[in-house]
């Protein structure tokens, strides 16, 4: 509880400083997660290992050997963190970027459709939000659908879009990007409508006393006040966009991209490959969100909105 935290007497321990902020606790929690991961890997992989021993006629393998063996299986139920790390290193640093086995190559494919879809979706969302804010009819008729469409599992139509577009000869980047567009445009629309409406009544009145045109009010008041909302919804949008790109790679039999790595990994039981694709996707998502966070900080600072 906050009160206890605030009134706790300063401790003398040399680690006290480390544990005060967020960095220390986060590191400890990450370490704990990795420890649990190792433990789970041993426990989940042990039954298979015991089977192997039985078949190999090895009677009483010492515990240390059992642990070591469970952590170095070829197709473990749960690969150990270091196995995933090694695979990641192998498929990024040790392979040519153009190789089909390079994770950078697959990540790049996913990234390109993510970005294309994200840019289109954001532009579409901003444009739609501007229309909605200025048209009473669109506001009353379109917005309820935009909002309720968020409750619909949009990803469910991903395979259909891909297959149908393939059937009429559109393949490659564009169908996947369309799914990303679709997923990222909703949060941006909703966020921007909120943002464009965020100026207080008194500020809109001020514009009216100058008899400013709607376009002037948009440029000078609505858009600047919507900036924080735009960045917040862009963070959600880019994450959704990546999910869209990955899911968009699933149904075509998947030749390239992180989604394809997931799918082929699951076909052939290559758990290490699945996990490394998963980690790569996570890193990609975190990087994209962080980049938007940096852009947000810069933009808001330049606008003087951040103190």
């Amino acid at each position: 509880m906050t009160i206890e935290a605030l009134t706790a007497p300063p401790s003398r321990s040399p680690f006290a400083g480390l544990m005060q902020g967020t960095a220390g606790p986060v590191l400890v929690v990450v370490a704990a997660i990795i420890a649990v991961w190792y433990l789970a890997a041993v426990m989940l992989n042990a039954p298979f290992q015991r089977d192997m021993y039985k078949r190999g006629g090895i009677e009483d393998a010492p515990l240390a050997q059992l642990v070591a063996d469970t952590l170095s299986q070829d197709r473990p139920v749960l690969p150990a963190p270091h196995q995933v790390a090694v695979e990641l290193w192998d498929t990024t640093a040790n392979k040519a970027v153009t190789s089909k086995r390079s994770l950078v190559y697959h990540g790049g494919i996913t990234l390109s459709s993510t970005l294309l879809g994200f840019v289109l979706g954001t532009a579409l969302g901003i444009g739609l939000a501007i229309l909605v804010v200025h048209s009473r009819v669109l506001d009353k008729s379109l917005m309820p659908w935009v909002i309720s469409s968020q409750t619909i599992p949009i990803l469910a139509i991903a395979p259909m879009i891909i297959v149908v577009l393939n059937a009429i000869g559109i393949s490659g980047l564009l169908p996947k990007a369309m799914i990303s567009t679709y997923l990222s445009f909703f949060p941006v629309t909703v966020g921007m409508v909120k943002g464009l409406r965020s100026p207080e009544a008194i500020q809109m009145d001020l514009m009216k006393t100058y008899s400013a045109s709607p376009a002037q009010a948009l440029w000078k008041l609505r858009l600047p006040s919507a900036m924080p909302y735009l960045f917040a919804s862009m963070k959600v949008g880019v994450a959704a966009s990546l999910v869209g790109a990955i899911v968009g790679e699933l149904p075509t039999g998947a030749v390239a991209g992180l989604g394809a790595r997931l799918l082929s990994g699951s076909y052939y039981g290559q758990t290490v490959q699945i996990w490394s694709a998963l980690i790569a996707a996570a890193v990609l998502a975190a990087t994209l969100v962080a980049l938007i966070g940096v852009a947000e900080r810069l933009a808001l600072k330049r606008m003087g909105m951040r103190r």
């Binding site: 006393t209 600047p224 003087g304």
Partner: peptide, 14 residues
């Protein structure tokens, strides 16, 4: 006319 509101209503980004 020029109007001065009850609050300053300055734009924080300017």
């Amino acid at each position: 006319y020029g109007y001065v509101f009850q609050a300053a209503a300055l734009y924080p980004w300017r």
